[in-house]
């Protein structure tokens, strides 16, 4: 079961994409909603809002515990990527999970009029992925042991660790399920490894 953090943002678009590929999902608003969930998606939205609301009602704490225990895979899109990053440049106090060794700069491409769409080459994908960047953060530092699966203008835009990944673009706003399939596999392998 994939959980989708549903405190704010475009969580329905993620749900619809997982439904399309036959993966069951559950909305996560409180810690108890994480029971039985093997992968948690943090959607796009406003990172300051998501950070505050996830801290209340225990979601942040429980997600951290489960991630460290090795029973929860994580995927953050845009605002969700900010939530997973260890360091947010200029906003040291912004609430976040902070489990991935990354530094991010919020809105580093500029304000909304600078938002853009473009085709991306992603490692392991047989054809380009149409990526939509909306007031996207820039990943300014990638920690040891993390893999860059895609870059744009030299900056990483898709990074993964052992059981967590971030995309600074929005696969949920397209009709292309490949990144969702990628995460569903990652979450499943995680469980299998734990069970085995």
């Amino acid at each position: 079961m994939i959980g989708i953090l549903a405190v704010q943002g475009d969580f329905r678009e993620h749900e619809q994409m997982f439904r399309k590929i036959g993966v069951p999902t559950r909305r996560v608003r409180r810690a108890a909603d994480l029971v039985g969930v093997t992968g948690l998606v943090i959607p796009g939205g406003e990172s300051t809002t998501i950070g505050k609301l996830a801290r209340e009602y225990g979601v942040e704490e429980e997600a951290r515990r489960r991630y460290q225990e090795g029973t929860l895979a994580l995927w953050g899109t845009c605002a969700g990527a900010i939530w997973l990053a260890r360091e947010i440049e200029g906003y040291p106090d912004q609430p976040r999970l902070g489990v991935l060794d990354l530094s991010v700069a919020r809105n580093a491409y500029g304000r909304q009029v600078e938002s853009f769409e473009t085709d991306l080459e992603i490692e392991g994908f047989d054809r380009p992925f149409h990526a939509i960047f909306i007031r996207a953060p820039v990943i300014t530092r990638v920690g040891k042991g993390l893999r860059m699966l895609a870059t744009y203008r030299g900056d990483p835009v898709f990074v993964r660790g052992e059981r967590a990944m971030v995309t600074t673009f929005h696969p949920e706003l397209t009709d292309d399920p490949r990144v969702h399939e990628y995460f569903a596999r990652l979450a499943e392998e995680e469980v299998r490894a734990k069970a085995g």
């Binding site: 704010q8 943002g9 939205g45 845009c78 938002s115 939509i132 909306i134 706003l173």
Partner: peptide, 8 residues
């Protein structure tokens, strides 16, 4: 897509 990010 930007408007989608305001939802909720």
């Amino acid at each position: 897509g930007f408007a989608e990010m305001f939802k909720g």
